[in-house]
Design a protein around this nucleic acid. Structure first.
Lengths: 114, 114
DNA sequence: TGAACATATGATCAATTATTCATATGTCAA
DNA sequence: TTGACATATGAATAATTGATCATATGTTCA
């Protein structure tokens, strides 16, 4: 493991985050702060999936998946595409894809260094 | 066997996240899913700060700050340095610094595109 | 030693939230 | 149309959580 200093991120938050920004940012993190939603995100990471298949793969009730998808949709993290009676969900935001990937790498490295 | 990844973050989660990984990852995001903790992180982003100054700057009770700092410390997001009767907190993990900076950039861009 | 200061922490309470159940809406095929 | 399938959603419930209060621990200095 390297221990180099990332000069890139320094200075980004020179002042303490104001109330509005911190609420907004917390909202983004909160969307990813649940195992079920993370598994949904990982399931649609590469390809779109319909609700039924998501429920099946994740072994969750269809209702639970729908509720979480709605939240992710409200936060513009996933988007819907209707096709007949199926609704396909996919990642709406590549930033979130990167955020997810970055954080996943982080915990995997942490895991190894304990 | 191995397929070529068309984009940087693609392929990171080729399979659906397992229960353990999703719990761990959710834990990391949950740590940042609260405005108060985010403001604490932003306050120690560049320099260490003692508890009292954090409480003063963030306009929070000392107790509330201490509780949140403990959580951040348990998650190895901040670290303590004792000096006399003061305890100075700083970011313990540069990955978190990058994660924070990345996410902040994200919402700032989103903000502009609405 | 005692008083003031700095930090930590257990208990409590209010607010939030993830899931389940029941049900509604919408689509397709026979 | 009817019945089966796919998805969405409101209500209820249990679990989690952030802040506060009261108090404990630890440090410095007169």
């Amino acid at each position: 493991m390297t221990q180099k200093k990332p000069r890139s991120a320094r200075g980004v938050a020179s002042a303490v985050l104001d109330a509005h920004s911190s609420e907004q940012l917390a909202g983004l993190f909160r969307a990813l702060a649940d195992p079920t939603r993370l598994r949904i995100v990982s399931a649609v990471f590469d390809d779109e999936q319909c609700v039924h298949d998501l429920a099946s793969v994740l072994e969750l009730e269809q209702s639970a998946v729908s509720h979480q998808l709605r939240m992710l949709r409200d936060l513009r993290i996933v988007r819907r595409r209707k096709e007949g009676r199926h609704v396909y969900y996919s990642l709406d935001d590549s930033h979130v894809r990167d955020l997810f990937a970055f954080a996943l790498e982080h915990i995997r490295h942490q895991e190894g260094s304990r």
